[in-house]
Nucleic acid binder design. Structure first.
Length: 178
DNA sequence: ACCGTGATTGAG
DNA sequence: TCAATCACGGTT
């Protein structure tokens, strides 16, 4: 039993809440020789159902986005612009398509760079985020940081309302003084 | 600012 | 069949 593991119960909640609460959690990846890399999540985005015009599910279920309709805590990986694997984690109840995009950690900025650095590609798509699959999430230390939110990146195609929704979350600087 | 790069998608 | 699109990143 791994008490620190973030499991289905954590992800089976409103996706915007999960996106915010993932800040400070650890993205854990098994490497060769049993080595484990743990990175503190610092930037996320929520994609919230078919009504969200920036969400891949905005036009209904397709072969690619079907995983978003499934069980919370499952990995959704897709190739963006022919080059970059983007890592998402499925949230909410089955049948409701949603996911959190991992955009950065304290060490790595950018969703494409993150997967590149960790050696993640489409092989983990549709797998559960658990230790035996080589990628999982653990509760992190509570950090003295402020969380900020704002519009998501690269979704201007979604129309003003959804493009402006403050569904992106990130750490600001550590609180100074006092 | 522009472009590489290729899966995905919806239209024809 | 096919062309537009695209949750990015690197370079000009």
């Amino acid at each position: 039993m791994d008490h620190a593991l973030l499991g289905k119960d954590f992800f089976n909640r409103p996706v915007v809440l999960v996106a915010r609460e993932l800040l400070g959690a650890n993205l854990c990846v098994s490497k060769k020789k049993g080595e484990v890399v743990k990175m503190t999540i610092s930037e996320t985005e929520a994609y919230d159902g078919e009504e969200d015009l920036a969400c891949h599910a905005s036009k209904g279920k397709t072969p690619r986005n079907e995983v978003m309709y499934g069980e919370a805590g499952v990995i959704y990986l897709y190739l963006c612009y022919g080059m970059h694997w983007l890592l998402n984690i499925v949230c909410e109840r089955e049948g409701y398509p949603s996911a959190v995009l991992l955009r950065g950690t304290l060490d790595v900025n950018g969703p494409g760079r993150l997967t590149r650095k960790l050696g993640i590609d489409g092989k983990l798509n549709r797998k559960r985020a658990i230790h035996s699959n080589g990628l999982w999430f653990e509760r992190g230390n509570v950090l003295k940081r402020q969380i900020q939110s704002g519009p998501r990146i690269g979704v201007n195609f979604a129309g003003e309302y959804w493009a402006q929704k403050p569904y992106r979350f990130w750490f600001s600087k550590a609180k100074s003084g006092a």
